[in-house]
């Protein structure tokens, strides 16, 4: 099933075969359909694989600069508080170059929803190390595996954001292994914004078979390793 808010003429997508974005964007599309918010939603895209969704939705979208999706969408929300504002970013745009803006937006409790796709590397540029790269994981800039003594341990984004945010934030992590869970958390995150409660953030553990150089089975085996490093669940749910 293809979400109603997808542009059928934009299929097949620009994403690589087996990319986790397919599952994530279908989940987002289903939520937008179910909450009937396509007309008042705006999706900001980062520079990275998220930009490949630029003409996928029958929803206003805008490509920003790398790591700058959160501040642009926060600014937009200030101007148009009645809109539903989504910022789609990756582990680089969110936890590296854009970390400062992301943390401060969370800290201010900006009423936006940030969806961060974590595939443990920088996909669009060919698979370099990200803050979320696992120990010993091979990437283009860690050819013999990530040395955590020199480059740091895997980055726990939602955990840090949890400490910075107030009690009205919604923070969760899901894996694409369970698309229904992804959908559930995205819906709760968006509702947190619509009900005017607080900053909402969902990290989604995803896959990149092209840069991981894995087939379907190996892809999901590696996803399991990622799931062990980054526990799924709702870290803050405002209930």
């Amino acid at each position: 099933m293809i979400p109603k808010c997808f542009k059928k003429e934009s299929l097949p997508t620009y994403f690589c075969p087996g990319c986790g974005y397919g599952i994530i964007l279908k989940a987002l599309g289903n939520v937008i359909d179910r909450l009937e918010i396509s007309q008042r939603s705006v999706i900001g895209l980062d520079i990275g694989c998220s930009l490949l969704a630029w003409d996928l939705f029958k929803v206003d979208t805008i490509q920003t600069h790398h790591g700058r999706t959160t501040p642009v969408m926060a600014g937009f929300k200030f101007a148009k508080p009645e809109s539903v504002v989504l910022a789609l970013t990756g582990d680089g745009g969110g936890y590296a170059i854009g970390l400062q803006a992301l943390l401060h937006s969370a800290h201010r409790n900006d009423l936006i929803t940030v969806i961060l796709v974590n595939n443990t590397l920088y996909g669009m540029t060919g698979g370099q190390m990200a803050p979320t790269t696992l120990p010993k994981e091979i990437t283009e800039t860690t050819p013999s595996g990530r040395n955590t003594k020199k480059t740091g341990l895997p980055f726990l984004g939602p955990e840090i954001i949890k400490i910075l945010t107030n009690k009205h934030a919604y923070i969760a992590r899901a894996s694409i292994r369970n698309p229904l869970k992804v959908e559930e958390y995205i819906e709760k995150a968006i509702k947190n914004q619509i009900h005017g409660k607080g900053f909402s953030f969902v990290e989604i553990l995803s896959v990149c078979p092209i840069n991981w150089k894995t087939d379907a089975k190996e892809t999901f085996d590696f996803l399991e390793k990622i799931e062990q490093a980054y526990p799924s669940g709702e870290l803050k749910s405002n209930e």
Binding site: I2, L11, P12
Partner: peptide, 11 residues
């Protein structure tokens, strides 16, 4: 299969 297909090719 329908849920996990990244392109929504299966129904």
């Amino acid at each position: 299969c329908e849920r996990v297909c990244p392109e929504g090719a299966i129904e």
